[in-house]
Computed example of a mutant assay.
Amino acid sequence: MAAQSNAATAGTATVQGLLSELAALEDPQVRAVNERHGDDHGVNLGQLRAIAKRVKPQPALARELWATGDTAARLLSVLISRPKAFTAGELDAMVRQGPVPKVNDWLVNYVVKKSPHAQVLRPAWLADPDPVVAASGWALTSERVVKSPDGLDVDHLLAEIAEHMATAPQRLQWAMNHCLAQIGIELPEHRAQALDIGARLGVLKDHPTPPNCTSPYAPLWIKEILRRREAG
């Protein structure tokens, strides 16, 4: 109850109060599951979202939570951020400071993609030697393929995927593979090339896929989404 009262409302929330509340929610079993995926925290994400809903967006508080370096605090920071409140430089620094998979995923999807700086950062990140930063660039590129592909050099993107995806570190490989699939799904003029690259590389071809889930293997992924669209 003490932790709850320390951060009871949006108006009274403090970094220390929220850190205490997060610490009280720490669950060893949740941590054990998360650590298998590279995420070093033990807070149930539903509970984390409930805190964020109560606290509401607060950019200054979000920055303070991020600065703690604590993974659960950074996840909460992302949820109470306002994407337009960050400069391109801040977002670049945050992506480089947040290599934990869930933190990076939420930061890119909930903040960077909604930022006016996303398309400024995207090409620089694509070329970055840090695989986490490069993966973030590919995530932004996948978004661009779906929403506004005009102006993209798709032939160059496919050439980069063909040359580097098979040997890329796992997180970067997944991001490149996602982009390959989106190109095949959304851009009919490049579909045959995307299918050919996916088949030749065979990336994630043998990845275990639960029943009723779509395989991450790009050729199957592309064909399944198109089948569903045709079926209405």
Score class of each variant (00 low, 15 high):
M176R: 15
F86H: 15
A135Y: 01
A127E: 03
V95W: 03
S142Y: 04
R191V: 14
D155H: 07
Q119Y: 15
S215A: 12
E224R: 14
L180Q: 10
Y217L: 08
E163T: 12
R96C: 11
Q182V: 05
W138I: 00
A192I: 02
G202S: 05
S136T: 05
S142P: 08
V132K: 00
T209V: 08
L158V: 05
E143C: 09
P131C: 01
Q170D: 15
G184L: 02
L121S: 01
L195Y: 02
E143I: 08
P99E: 10
A134L: 00
Q182P: 11
A162P: 02
D153N: 14
V112N: 04
E143P: 03
L152R: 04
V203W: 12
I197E: 05
D196C: 11
L195E: 02
S115D: 03
A85V: 10
A192V: 03
Q170G: 07
L187Y: 01
A194K: 01
R96P: 04
N212D: 13
E163L: 14
D153S: 09
L180R: 13
D128G: 03
R227H: 12
K102N: 13
A118E: 05
D92L: 06
L157A: 09
P99C: 10
K147N: 06
L172E: 02
P116L: 04
G151T: 07
E189P: 05
Y110C: 08
Q182K: 15
P210I: 02
A162V: 03
H207L: 11
K205E: 14
M94P: 05
L201M: 10
V100M: 11
P83E: 06
Q173P: 04
D155A: 15
P211G: 10
L152P: 04
A181K: 08
Y217Q: 06
V103T: 12
R200I: 05
N177S: 14
A124W: 03
P131T: 01
D196Y: 05
R96Q: 13
P116T: 09
K223I: 06
V132N: 01
D130T: 01
Q182T: 13
L140I: 09
N177L: 10
A159H: 06
P188A: 12
T209N: 07
D153K: 09
S81Y: 07
T141A: 00
A159S: 13
P216T: 02
A218W: 02
L152M: 06
Q193V: 10
P129Q: 03
D206R: 14
L204I: 03
V203E: 11
P149K: 05
L107P: 08
G137T: 01
P129K: 06
H190K: 13
